[in-house]
C-alpha cells in the first residue's frame, strides 16, 4: 500500500506536461486507478480529419514549454482545490500529430463520477483557453493555417477573460 501510494505521488509530481512523444493513453490510464476512486474519466483531444469544411492532413503543435507546463500544473492544482480528486493529470503534445492521434489527454479520478467529469471538463477548458500552446493545421490541399484561436476577447473585451464551457454546466 505504501509503495503504491509513493509510486502514484511520483507519477503525478514527475508528470511531463508537454511532450513531443506520442501520448500513451493506455499507460496513463493504468496509472490512474486509485483505491478510493469509484470514477475515472479520461478525455483525449484527438486530431480529426476535417475543420471548417476543409480536409486536414495533420496538425503541428507548438508550445512555450516552461510557461505551458507551469500553467497546466497550476490548473491541475486549482482543480484539486475545487473538487476532491484522487488523480488529476494532463499532458499535451507538441510537434506533428496525425489524424486519430491524441493531442491532449486529461485524466481525473474521484470517489464519484460527478466530480471526475466536472473537474476533467474544467481542466481541458482552461488548458485550451489559457496555456501558451498553438496548433497549425496542414490541409490536404497543401495550405496551412494557424488555427482555432481562442476568440473570447471578442465577447469579453479582455484578452485575459475567457468564456468556459464548464461554466455553462455548473
Amino acid at each position: 500500500m505504501t509503495a503504491w501510494l509513493l509510486s502514484h505521488q511520483a507519477a503525478e509530481v514527475n508528470m511531463e506536461y508537454i511532450t513531443s512523444k506520442d501520448l500513451d493513453l493506455v499507460a496513463l490510464l493504468q496509472q490512474s486507478h486509485h483505491p478510493s476512486a469509484g470514477a475515472v474519466v479520461l478525455f483525449s483531444g484527438d486530431v480529426r480529419n476535417n475543420n471548417v469544411g476543409k480536409m486536414v492532413d495533420y496538425l503541428e503543435y507548438e508550445a512555450h514549454t516552461s510557461m505551458a507546463s507551469k500553467m497546466i500544473e497550476s490548473i491541475l492544482s486549482d482543480a484539486r482545490k475545487r473538487w476532491s480528486l484522487n488523480i488529476a493529470i494532463a499532458q499535451h503534445r507538441t510537434g506533428k500529430v496525425r489524424i486519430t492521434e491524441s493531442a491532449v489527454v486529461v485524466i481525473t479520478a474521484s470517489a464519484h463520477r460527478a466530480e471526475a467529469y466536472a473537474a476533467n471538463r474544467y481542466i481541458i477548458d482552461r488548458i485550451k483557453h489559457e496555456a501558451p500552446i498553438w496548433k497549425c493545421e496542414f490541409f490536404t490541399d497543401g495550405t496551412k493555417e494557424w488555427g482555432g484561436n481562442c476568440n473570447c476577447h471578442k465577447d469579453t473585451g479582455n484578452i485575459n477573460k475567457h468564456i468556459y464551457e464548464f461554466e455553462e454546466i455548473l
Partner: peptide, 26 residues
C-alpha cells in the same frame, strides 16, 4: 521571465520578452 506582464510593465534593455498569441491548444 515566464510570467505574463501587463501593458504598463516597465521594460529594461536586458529583458527577454516573449510575445504570446491567443492559445489554440487542445
Amino acid at each position: 521571465h515566464d510570467e505574463f506582464v501587463a501593458d504598463h510593465y516597465q521594460l529594461t534593455g536586458n529583458d527577454s520578452v516573449v510575445v504570446i498569441p491567443p492559445s489554440s491548444g487542445g
